[in-house]
Design a protein around this nucleic acid. Sequence first.
DNA 1: ATTCCACAGGAATGAACGGAAC
DNA 2: GTTCCGTTCATTCCTGTGGAAT
Length: 409
Amino acid sequence: MAPFEPKETIFRNESVLQGHYVPDELVGREEELEKYHKALQPVMNGSNPNNILLLGKSGVGKTVATKTKLRELEKSYHQYYDDHFSTLFVNCEDYSSSYQVMIRFVNMLRDDDDQISTTGHPSNKVKQLLRDEINKQGGVFLFVLDEINHLSDDSILYEISRAKADESITDARIGLIGISNALDYRETLSGKVKSSLNERRLRFPAYTADDLRAVLQDRVENGLQDGVIDDGVIALCAAHGAADGGDARNAIDLLYHAAQIAQNHDDLKITTGHVDRARDKMQENEIVEGIQDLSEHERIVLYALATFEAQDKTPVRNSELYERYLNLAPSDREPRSSRRVRDFVSVLEDLSLVKIHSYNGGRGQGRWATVSLDKPLQYVVQGLSPLIEDIGLHTSIRTVWESKLSPQP
DNA sequence: ATTCCACAGGAATGAACGGAAC
DNA sequence: GTTCCGTTCATTCCTGTGGAAT
């Protein structure tokens, strides 16, 4: 093997193209940032912060806008005031109930050697602990709940908005910032939260292809060497991003993967061909990794559906799917009820692995749903391969299975 | 306008589990 | 040890529903 030596790289600063990077300036969101700025202004005036709800699909800059704006705010605040200021950022994908989020907040406000456990407490006690920590430190607290639509209950919203009004918080000013991918999030809230929240709403529209071109151009200038990118690459990534719902994260990711592929092949220029390959590879990874996170029975349901797909018998009715699921599930795995399997199918739909269609035959027929695979069969079979090796190969997918083992060039 | 169908999906309930509190 | 607490995953029961047929 050749010795290690420095290699020519097309990257200037690779991290600029990676997912966790927070740019100093958000391109193409001037109007939204202006509104955000105004909504945060009361903090600087010494009054109670507004509650703020940010709405917009994924990858439209809500989280990045929040991080940059709050960074700015904190800096300015300390120029004029010397009391406590903290922003507590929690992603509700990791902490999915109000209870867990509150415990997380308590622990963020406490020292490392004074943490409380994440289970076992009565919820009233957790509320009290949080109030105690807030009162102890005083000053300004901004609670940021990212992906707030993943929260299974909204009691924490009620707690925070009520704490602002009543006497339980004495020496502190608190505000709530919720970030939601679901545009109708407000409608899912309970009545008492809706009326007590009294929030400012900021809508972040999807990026257009033009916006995305500007975003990508900015990242390319900072992240890549001069002249390593072919004509049309940015436009192609922007077009894919716009078609995928105006998601800048996806567009940047696509460009980054294309750059990595070029780099790995010692190509000195990123071409649209690299973008195409990156897109295929990303789709494959997304499916295979998505399947890895499924529970065993969810995977058996998906397997059952894959066999129908291989036989060209999709869309298939839930009842038929359930029967095959029962046949495929090994007897020692205790098959679930049909009601439960309908829930599994709906999980698979949320992950965009399957599509559900509703039909109605009217009098004498009733109504029913059918399911079909929403991703290429070969990738799904690949993702399912550990399960298939475990519970056995269904004859319907033998061809797909064998071509997986000896892939055609 | 009413009837009728199959079943999607909501609601209630319970068991199992990890951890706190006594 | 026992009791309490919140969460997850499961079951059972059953109501609501869209639209063709009447």
